[in-house]
């Protein structure tokens, strides 16, 4: 696969988006309704509220918490949360000795069925570059000051585990 030259001087991204949609629509390969459906799903139906429901259940249901930590994929499946970017879910607990933080340094992989599409800060090169090297400082800058005796584990989701 060849690398691409810089595409200087092209029309803006919004215009190119419109152009691509027009080309694919003319070929009968996409239609506005199908695009709207996918967009609406991630704007309205799937988002961090899914993950929040899972965590809240774990707070009040010790058996569920155990299942969640043992087999995250099956446990979140009890809520019907599955699909692309959720093939294998690993759940790790924070406590007063351990704080976990997740990143995808290579693109911006994210557990879509549980949290929706990644927020801007997760996709920010500043986060992708620095969280693996100076997580305590980055978390502090983001508003989370952790005590010095709390261990930080950073998870770089470089394969298909989320």
């Amino acid at each position: 696969m060849t690398a691409q030259p810089h595409s200087g001087g092209r029309a803006s991204a919004p215009i190119r988006t419109e152009a691509l949609e027009a080309l694919l629509t003319e070929k009968g390969l996409v239609n506005a309704g199908a695009l709207d459906g996918l967009i609406n799903r991630f704007v309205n139906d799937v988002g961090p509220m899914n993950g929040a429901r899972v965590v809240a259940r774990a707070w009040v249901d010790a058996d569920f918490r155990e299942r969640l930590l043992d087999d995250g994929t099956a446990a979140v499946g009890e809520f019907g949360f599955s699909g692309p970017q959720g093939e294998h879910i690993v759940v790790v607990p924070n406590d007063d000795k351990q704080h976990n933080v997740v990143v995808c340094t290579l693109c911006s992989c994210y557990p879509w069925p549980l949290l929706g599409l990644p927020p801007d800060w997760y996709k920010d090169p500043a986060y992708r570059s620095r969280i693996v090297r100076e997580p305590r400082l980055v978390l502090s800058e983001m508003g989370l000051d952790l005590e010095d005796d709390i261990n930080i584990t950073v998870w770089d989701s470089s394969a298909e585990n989320r």
């Binding site: 991204a13 919004p14 967009i39 927020p119 800060w121 992708r128 620095r130």
Partner: peptide
């Protein structure tokens, strides 16, 4: 990007929308 220097601090947008502009949603879907 892991370990690169020079990208500055992480910016958090408090009222962020899933797609900041309409074209972003359509680019995602396509």
């Amino acid at each position: 990007m892991g370990g690169q220097d020079g990208w500055g601090t992480v910016t958090i947008e408090p009222d962020e929308q899933v797609f900041a502009s309409e074209w972003e949603g359509r680019a995602f879907a396509m």
